[in-house]
C-alpha cells in the first residue's frame, strides 16, 4: 500500500522535476550574465558562480555611456518601422477582407507569394539597391526595407482579423451614408486596435533584434543599432566582461518589460497567426 502510494507520488512529480531541470538550465546563462555584470576582472576569476560581495555597479554606468547612442538609434528605427508596418497592413488587410477590389484573389495570392521570398537571401541585391539610392548609412536605409519585410505577414494577420468582424458592421454605416473616409477613421481604426497591438509587438521584437541588415547598411559608429553596437563592444572591450554583461543586461530590460506587460496580447497574436496559416 505504502509502496503504491510512493510510486504514485513519484510518477506525478516526474514532469515537474524534468521541467524544473529545464528551467534551471534555461535560466542559468541569464543568471551568470547578471552576476558577471556586477564583477570586475578579478572577481570573475575567483568567484565565477556566486553573487559578488562587492558589486561593481559602475559597470552599468560605464556600459550605459558606451551604448547610449545605440539605444537611441534603435529606439528611433524600430518604432518607425512598426508605425509604417501598422499603417500599411491595417489598410491593406481591411481592403482585402471587406472591400471590392479588381482581381482581389490574384492580388492576395501575390502577397502570399512574396511571403515566400526569404528576406535573408535578398541581403546583397538589397544592399546594391540601397547603395544606388544613396540610402546607405542612413536611418531610412534600415527603416524602409524593414517596413517592406514586416508588412506582408502583418497584412495576412490583419486580413484574417477583419474577416472575423461581421460585414454588417460596415454595411450599416455605409447605408447611413457615411463616406468611406469616415468609415475608415471612425470605425476601421478604432476596431483594429487589438490587431495593431499584435502587429506592433511582433514587428518590434523581430526588428529590434535584427542584426545582419543594420550591420551592413549602417557603417558609421554613431548610426549603429543595439545588436550591431553590442557586437562592436565585444571587440573594443575584449576582456572587460563585466562591462559587456552589464550592457547585455541593460538592452534586455526594455524587451523583457514589454513582454511582461503584454504577454496576453503577444501569446494570443502568436497562436492566432499560427492557427490561421
Amino acid at each position: 500500500m505504502k509502496n503504491k502510494k510512493l510510486k504514485r507520488v513519484k510518477s506525478t512529480h516526474i514532469p515537474e522535476i524534468i521541467l524544473l531541470i529545464f528551467v534551471v538550465l534555461t535560466i542559468a546563462p541569464i543568471y551568470i550574465m547578471i552576476v558577471t555584470s556586477l564583477k570586475d576582472q578579478n572577481q570573475i576569476v575567483t568567484n565565477f558562480w556566486g553573487i559578488p560581495t562587492m558589486p561593481h555597479w559602475e559597470n552599468y554606468s560605464k556600459a550605459w555611456s558606451v551604448i547610449r547612442k545605440y539605444v537611441l538609434n534603435s529606439f528611433i528605427i524600430t518604432p518607425s518601422i512598426c508605425v509604417g508596418v501598422i499603417m500599411i497592413s491595417v489598410f491593406a488587410g481591411y481592403a482585402f477582407a471587406k472591400l471590392e477590389l479588381p482581381a482581389k484573389e490574384l492580388l492576395f495570392t501575390i502577397v502570399l507569394m512574396f511571403q515566400m521570398i526569404p528576406v535573408g537571401l535578398l541581403l546583397i541585391p538589397m544592399y546594391l539597391n540601397i547603395l544606388s539610392l544613396h540610402l546607405n548609412d542612413t536611418y531610412w536605409g534600415v527603416i524602409l526595407p524593414g517596413i517592406a519585410g514586416g508588412s506582408i505577414v502583418a497584412t495576412v494577420l490583419s486580413r484574417s482579423f477583419f474577416e472575423g468582424i461581421p460585414d454588417s458592421v460596415f454595411e450599416a454605416a455605409r447605408i447611413d451614408g457615411a463616406k468611406e473616409l469616415v468609415i475608415v477613421l471612425r470605425m476601421v481604426m478604432p476596431l483594429s486596435l487589438p490587431i495593431m497591438g499584435t502587429i506592433f509587438l511582433q514587428t518590434f521584437f523581430s526588428k529590434f533584434n535584427e542584426f545582419m541588415w543594420p550591420f551592413i547598411v549602417l557603417s558609421s559608429d554613431k548610426m549603429r543599432t543595439i545588436p550591431v553596437g553590442l557586437n562592436q563592444l565585444a571587440g573594443q572591450y575584449g576582456v572587460d566582461y563585466g562591462l559587456q554583461m552589464a550592457a547585455y543586461c541593460i538592452v534586455s530590460i526594455p524587451l523583457i518589460a514589454l513582454i511582461v506587460c503584454t504577454m496576453k496580447i503577444y501569446i494570443g497574436g502568436v497562436t492566432v497567426g499560427a492557427v490561421k496559416e
Binding site: F22, V23, T26, I27, P29, I30, I32, M33, T36, F205, F208, N209, F211, I226, P227, L230, N231, A234, Y241, Q244, M245, Y248, V251, S252, L255, I256, L258, I259, V260, M263, I267
Partner: peptide
C-alpha cells in the same frame, strides 16, 4: 518561465554562450 527568455535579444544569447 519558458516563455520569458524569448524576450532576450538573440544577439545577447549568442554573446552570452560565447562567454
Amino acid at each position: 518561465l519558458f516563455f520569458l527568455p524569448m524576450a532576450l535579444p538573440s544577439i545577447v544569447v549568442v554573446m552570452m554562450w560565447k562567454f
